[in-house]
Nucleic acid binder design. Structure first.
Length: 290
DNA sequence: ACGAGATCCTGTCAGC
DNA sequence: TGCTGACAGGATCTCG
């Protein structure tokens, strides 16, 4: 669920912890976190020096005896909570007794940082800052939909640049972070709706103008979602526990059967590459499913 | 080298 | 009411 705008909202919410020192670390005893447990626990005594975002990844930087970095992904259900000491102490049970928490940091400004990851699709893995730059997930990222200087030429190139191999449907392309970063299933459907492009169109059947229009809509949707602080459909929450409001702005996503906001034709839903896709068969009729 | 499909995981909800 | 199964989906893995 968290896509680029949600991750960026979370990142901005977490910025107050930059500059704080970690006094206490706890890592849940979970099989996916066990291999990294000691390395995460070794963050005790270090200072959080920065938190950046790359696509849907966040990178936490730490300085102590050595420089460390954590590659963090929220997956579908990852949530960071940042609580004051007062709120923290109002909990009726210790946080260790709540389900699905994975990483806890007690900070020297008397605040508490907790990473909750219900379906464990998310990750928090330790590296050096140099290893992060070389990491395949970071190195191969395409242009970011939240980038003020979104590289449209590069986007067009990546949409089409798959050599002689078969070209993917545009709906699948938008979920490939090596083509475009920060777009997920929701903003895929929303940007294709605004660009009036059917999600099942093979990318190489789109004109250069259509691809440029799609790039424009991707960044437009991304920035709007950021202004609305993301879409809270199920699990996504901001660091204070509040919901985003972008879910009220959808034209297509999760609106199967509802009238299209432009032409009133009912919105359709179909599975595309194991993911749901929503579109208006009238406005986005440039390609007919055979 | 790349695409398709399976896999990970658990809360929620529809249907019986 | 209570159970079962489908569903949600980002990244990564395997297979062809």
């Amino acid at each position: 669920m968290p896509e680029g705008p949600e991750v960026e909202t979370v990142r901005r919410g977490l910025l107050p912890v930059v500059g704080t020192k970690i006094l206490e670390v706890k890592v849940a005893d979970h099989k996916k976190y066990r291999p990294q447990r000691a390395e995460i626990e070794a963050l005790e005594g270090t200072t959080i020096t920065d938190i950046t975002r790359r696509g849907k990844f966040m990178v936490f930087y730490f300085e102590g005896n050595s420089r460390k970095a954590a590659l963090n992904h929220l997956g579908m259900t990852g949530v960071w909570y940042h609580y004051s000491d007062q709120v923290w102490n109002e909990f009726d049970v210790p946080f260790e007794e709540y389900p699905h928490w994975k990483v806890y940091f007690g900070l020297d400004d008397n605040t508490h940082l907790l990473f909750v990851n219900t379906r464990t699709f998310g990750r928090f893995e330790m590296f050096t800052p140099e290893e992060i730059e070389e990491h395949k997930s970071i190195r191969t990222l395409g242009p970011d939909i939240l980038d003020d200087e979104f590289d449209t030429d590069e986007f067009v190139k990546r949409m089409l640049g798959r050599g002689k191999s078969r070209i993917k449907e545009v709906g699948k392309c938008l979920l490939d972070y090596t083509i475009v970063a920060g777009c997920g299933n929701i903003y895929k459907s929303e940007s294709l709706f605004l660009a009036k492009i059917n999600p099942f169109t093979p990318a190489n059947q789109l004109s250069e103008n259509q691809l440029r229009e799609l790039a424009k809509r991707l960044t437009e949707v991304g920035k709007k979602a950021l202004r609305f602080q993301g879409s809270s459909l199920r699990d996504y929450r901001m660091v204070d526990g509040y919901s985003g409001l972008m879910q009220n702005e959808f034209n297509a996503y999760d609106r199967a059967g509802d009238p299209c906001s432009v032409c009133t034709t009912p919105i359709l839903k179909a599975t595309q590459g194991d993911r749901s896709s929503f579109w208006c068969p009238s406005c986005q009729d440039n390609f007919v499913i055979s």
